[in-house]
């Protein structure tokens, strides 16, 4: 269980996350949605202890993320940010192998190799596995990073816009994979996502943020309504039912 208590983060005089409290039980996919600059990514980074909050605490399974040794947390919680650039030359397989670092400290065991192969297979990266990361397209690189955190095999996974740079097919596949990991492997996944329809399709719960606060929280059916979308994004959007799922028609 992830417990977020009164978390606040400021950049200069701007408050980006404003006293957010939220609790996320084990299992399922939670989507964080909101307009640009709503504080989703900042909140996610704070949960993943990449950023320190100015106030408030985050606990994962009762462990305060600010005080728990990094190595302990890295076996329970993984985070993937949206900007992933690596300054060094590294192949896809090498990168994925680093996902096992929290478990084996750089010396791969047979089990680690199995994890690595599975992750590469899951994300269909075999054709590029031995290519250097800087020779890949943005989407392929994104998939390689997802494979790395998948390989890390943590109970909690935090993904910041994992669909960035991905085409239709890979977006759908990646969301399907996220869904599958939650269902089959019992993982707890928090995903920051731009497209509310992807959230509606694959998340169990949607948390909507605006100006650093949580303004809506519930099942997709409760959130994807013209009223809530208006409140969160400030636009009028018709919502239709397609194949039993709400679909926001924001394209035109």
């Amino acid at each position: 269980m992830i417990e977020i208590e009164n978390v606040t983060r400021r950049y200069g005089t701007t408050t980006v996350v404003d006293g957010v409290s939220l609790s996320i039980p084990v299992g399922g996919v939670t989507a964080l949605v909101g307009a640009n600059g709503a504080g989703k990514s900042t909140l996610l980074s704070i949960i993943g202890r990449i950023l320190r909050p100015d106030a408030g605490t985050v606990r994962v399974d009762g462990l305060d993320v600010a005080a728990t040794p990094g190595a302990t947390l890295a076996r329970r919680l993984s985070i993937l940010r949206q900007e992933n650039q690596v300054a060094v030359r590294i192949t896809v397989r090498e990168l994925v192998e680093f996902g096992r670092f929290p478990h084996s400290g750089g010396r791969l065991t047979r089990e680690d190799v199995a994890h690595v192969n599975r992750a590469i297979e899951y994300l269909q990266l075999e054709p590029y596995a031995d290519r250097p990361l800087d020779r890949l397209s943005g989407g392929q690189r994104q998939l390689a990073f997802i494979a790395m955190v998948l390989c890390q095999d943590t109970g909690y996974m935090l993904l910041d816009e994992p669909l960035n740079n991905l085409d239709m097919r890979h977006s759908a596949q990646t969301m399907g994979l996220i869904r599958q990991m939650a269902q089959d492997l019992g993982k707890t996944i928090i995903v920051v996502i731009h497209d509310i329809n992807f959230a509606a399709c694959h998340a169990d719960r949607i948390v909507a943020m605006k100006d650093g606060r949580i303004v809506a929280d519930g099942a997709p059916r409760e959130i994807v309504t013209p009223e809530t979308i208006k409140a969160v994004f400030g636009i009028d959007v018709p919502v239709h039912e397609v194949d039993g799922r709400p679909l926001a028609m924001y394209f035109a």
Binding site: G48, R49, A71, A74, R75, N84, F98, F101
Partner: peptide
């Protein structure tokens, strides 16, 4: 050296992988 390899991946990756 092993941990320094992780550091070379960048601050965020290192933090995620549990390296201070």
């Amino acid at each position: 050296f092993g941990r320094l390899d992780v550091v070379a991946l960048g601050r965020e990756q290192a933090t995620n992988l549990g390296v201070d």
